[in-house]
Each structure stands twice: as C-alpha cells, then as structure tokens.
C-alpha cells in the first residue's frame, strides 16, 4: 500500500512543481497578446496591439539596440579571453591552478548588488559610468566563467591525438590547435558564449548602477516599467525577452547536440 502511494507521490509531486515553475511563464506570454488595456488573466480576447505599440516606440527600440550592443561586446570579450584561459588551465601545470579557477568562477556567486556598487565607485573617477563599454567590461567578468567551464569540458573530452598527428605531420603546434582542436571544441565554446550573452541581457543591478541614465538597456527600462506602468506592453517586452532567450538557447542546443555526438557535457547558468 505505502509502496503504491510512494510510486504515485513522486510523479504527482513532480507535476505540481512543474506547474508552479511554468505557470508564470504562460501567464506573461498570454497577457502579452491580450486585447484588454489592463493586466487581467485570462485575457478577454487576443490581439497583437502591444507588440505593434512596442515596435513603434523609439524608446524601447533604442533600449533593445543598447542591450544588443552590450551583449555582443560581452560575448566577444568573454570568448576572446575565456578560450585561451581554458587552454592554459586544462593543458598546463599552472601554479595555484585551483585558486585561479576559483578566481574566475568567483563572480558567479558574488551578489550582483556588490558588483554594481563597487564598479560604480571604480567607474566614476574614470568616466566609464553611462558608457556601453563600461557595462560590457563588467558583464564580461560574469560571462567568463561560462565560457571557461564549457571550453574546459570540451577540451577534456576532445581527442588530443588528432592534434598530435597534425604536429607529427609538420604543422606548427599553434596551427594544429587552430585547424584541428578549435573546430572540434567550437560547439562547447558556442554554448559558453550564448550563456555569456544571455546573462548580459538579463542582468539588472550592475546595469542600474553603470548604465541607468539616459541610455537604458532593456532590463533597466523593463524594471522601471514593471514598477510603474500597468498595461500589457511590459508583458510584450517580457515575451520578447523570453523569445530572445529561447532563440539563443536553441542555437546553444544545436551546438550541444553536435558536441553530444562527441560525448561532451555542457555547463550553464
């Protein structure tokens, strides 16, 4: 008897938790298509008026452009810095290796308000407050761990003999890495890069401190909106962000699928 109850309890519990996890997402998406001017759920009817309103609002479009710029710079910086670092950590006997790794990963568990406040104190005298570069430099610190973890994981399971074979056949070691190893681990790098991009798009607190003035990224403008406006435009922006995340992760998913064929794991936020 108790066995049967137990067997039913676990799937039922799982189902309830899944409903709890997904309900808010469904609510936001449905409300963004609401025909009503207020946030009622379920919506009385459906329309795309809030998307039309968004796309004709230069303020929101400007915020989108800023977010994309910061995200793109963050992704490029994180990848250019993180991939070589991952090579160094997985292939060379670095003194204090676990300390260096901890240093790179430390940003993941540092409360964002602390990053925001301390960067603001640092940026004010340097004139980096309210600059896209300043925010991208800060987001890179948080994007690096994802690139490094995923690249190390890919490197660990990539077959190094292929690279050695190239060197034996006369390729320089650097050329062998560029032509042989990088293409093999590219899906893993891409997964890390997507995570770096998405964390930059979503990040609010550092953005509030560093880029909260005239040129607001999407997260900052959304935050201001959530606290004041009460029409479904906010839900439409949220749904847009969900769409952006799903699209980016679909790319990462394809990359992961490619790498899974080679048996590589992936680590994400």
């Amino acid at each position: 008897m108790s066995v049967r109850v137990g067997r039913l309890a676990i799937p039922t519990g799982t189902l309830l938790v899944l409903l709890y996890l997904l309900f808010p997402v469904v609510v936001v998406v449905l409300i963004s298509f609401s025909s009503a001017r207020f946030l009622s759920f379920p919506p009385p009817g459906y329309s795309i008026q809030w998307y039309a309103k968004l796309l004709s609002d230069p303020d929101w479009l400007n915020s989108l452009a800023i977010t994309l710029q910061v995200g793109a710079l963050t992704t490029v910086f994180s990848t250019l810095l993180g991939v070589p670092a991952a090579f160094a950590l997985s292939r060379y006997g670095i003194p204090g290796r676990s300390f260096v790794t901890a240093l790179i990963l430390a940003s993941l568990i540092t409360p964002t308000i602390i990053k925001g406040l301390s960067l603001y104190l640092f940026y004010v005298p340097l004139g980096l407050v309210n600059t896209i570069w300043g925010l991208a430099a800060a987001h890179t610190v948080s994007g690096l761990p994802y690139v490094v973890i995923n690249t190390i994981a890919s490197l660990r399971s990539a077959d190094r003999d292929l690279e050695r074979a190239a060197v034996i056949h006369g390729a320089s070691p650097l050329w062998a890495v560029v032509r042989i190893t990088l293409p093999i681990i590219a899906p893993g790098i891409m997964v890390g890069a997507v995570f770096a991009f998405i964390q930059s798009v979503h990040e609010l607190l550092v953005a509030l401190f560093v880029l909260g003035g005239v040129e607001k990224p999407l997260a900052v403008k959304l935050w201001a909106g959530v606290r004041s406006e009460v029409d479904p435009t906010i839900a439409a922006v949220s749904t847009g962000l969900i769409g952006m995340a799903v699209l980016a992760y679909a790319c990462a998913g394809v990359a992961q699928l490619l790498s899974k064929r080679r048996g590589l794991p992936a680590a994400g936020p």
Partner: peptide, 15 residues
C-alpha cells in the same frame, strides 16, 4: 524557466 529573466518571472505573480 531557468532561462528566463528574474524580472519576468517575478512580475507574473503580480498579475
């Protein structure tokens, strides 16, 4: 849901 913004996920409870 792990992929989504904290703001988006907190906001639906208001509704």
């Amino acid at each position: 849901p792990y992929w989504l913004d904290y703001i988006v996920r907190s906001f639906s409870w208001l509704i």
